[in-house]
Design a protein around this nucleic acid. Structure first.
Lengths: 223, 223
DNA sequence: GCATGCCGATTTGCATACAAGATGGATGCC
DNA sequence: GGCATCCATCTTGTATGCAAATCGGCATGC
């Protein structure tokens, strides 16, 4: 259910276009609400409309864009209620993955998760927002993978992508880095010790706070 | 993330085709592994290949079919491990929805869920497999809806569709109807009383047993 | 002044045509 | 006889062309 699902060497033009457009959305070059004109995209990428249309359909199913018959496609522009739903959904998916990870990660995976977490402490302390953000994605991805369940992991990743446009620069809210790292600590401890319920709770707590941070950031920007 | 996501009057041909093909897969007319030839489907539906290709791409993203570049599309044929993953994922999604439903259903929704459940008792007692199965889908759908979270509900529905081809006639395993109804009772009680953790646990238990029933059924058929 | 209907321009939906990679079977070779 | 190779054929991928619906502006009428 994820964008890169058809991971294959020899990708078709439509696949490459879908990846490119998704990238544009995630980078903010294509903001929510932006109109996705078929001929425009086609010319821009030097292809015909056919692969563009296929790419758009693919993206529509992933939820990144909205298509309405005969009305064209736009980058998904969620209402505040829908954004709230996305955040709740992501929190639940992350928590579920954490729960399963606590139950089914291998000893090696647990150790690697712990190591990964510990290496992030330094980044947080140094206030390296950029590097921390990247490491953070990898950290969460490791937990998805640790759930050992492709459908759930894919959907968690999908949701993470979808909320991306709405939480850019979340770590800029002051103090967020250190808080985040402390919360990770609770999550890691629960997972490593095999405490499924604890992992679920700690992760829900963590992601909910991320949402709060988003709201704080949105409030700052609105001001 | 669901097939009928682009629910709109004025559906495009590709949308109608996607619905038709999905229907064929869910009805078993197109069994897992079946090749989906573009020209064949096009002729069969009296259209050109263009909308067929768009429909296939849509279905590929939903997970119902597998497409590989330049190799065509087939109805998804999951390995036993993948089927196991799908069942686990579905159990988790259902449990998550049940948890949220326990937290956020309105009093009216709770009463309706209870009523729906009670009307199923009679069907189970009478052994009306067909009617019970339909009511069962509606019952679970009501819980998805009660979660008040579209992304999670859609994905739960998607998973339900995807496991469909692998659990046809599950209720034929003897005694399954009554057991199912008893398990529903626990789920309903927890949701109605607002016991989030209890709802989660009861639903996991229920869906896991469905999976066992599937395995029992598969074993019978293999014999 | 505002609503309504009409018409041109634009855009999407679909069909057809063409190109290129994959498939399968016959052929030649060892 | 078995195996690799090559070629005809089929299937998928992409481009182009045409039909139909939508959108915007303008004129018309109230």
């Amino acid at each position: 259910m994820q964008i890169g699902m058809r991971t294959d060497t020899n990708p078709t033009l439509a696949d490459k276009l879908a990846a490119a457009i998704a990238d544009g959305i995630l980078n903010g070059r294509l903001p929510p609400g932006e109109r996705l004109d078929e001929v425009g995209l086609a010319e821009q990428h030097g292809v015909s409309r056919t692969p563009v249309r296929e790419a758009l359909r693919q993206l529509a199913m992933s939820g990144l864009i909205d298509m309405r018959p005969r009305k064209g496609a736009i980058v998904s522009k969620a209402t505040p209620e829908e954004i709230e739903s996305l955040f709740v959904a992501m929190a639940e998916m992350e928590a579920t993955c954490a729960r399963l990870a606590a139950m089914s990660m291998t000893p090696i995976e647990r150790r690697r998760l712990q190591a990964r977490h510990e290496s992030m402490v330094a980044l947080a302390a140094a206030g390296e927002t950029e590097a921390y953000s990247d490491a953070n994605v990898a950290f969460h991805s490791a937990i998805y993978a640790g759930a050992h369940n492709a459908p759930l992991a894919d959907y968690a990743m999908n949701l993470r992508r979808r909320v991306g446009p709405y939480r850019r620069a979340q770590f800029r809210v002051d103090g967020r880095l250190l808080r985040s790292n402390q919360e990770h600590d609770a999550v890691v401890r629960a997972i490593v010790s095999g405490d499924a319920a604890g992992a679920h709770a700690a992760m829900i707590h963590h992601v909910s706070l991320v949402e709060d941070a988003f709201e704080a950031f949105a409030a700052i920007n609105a001001a």
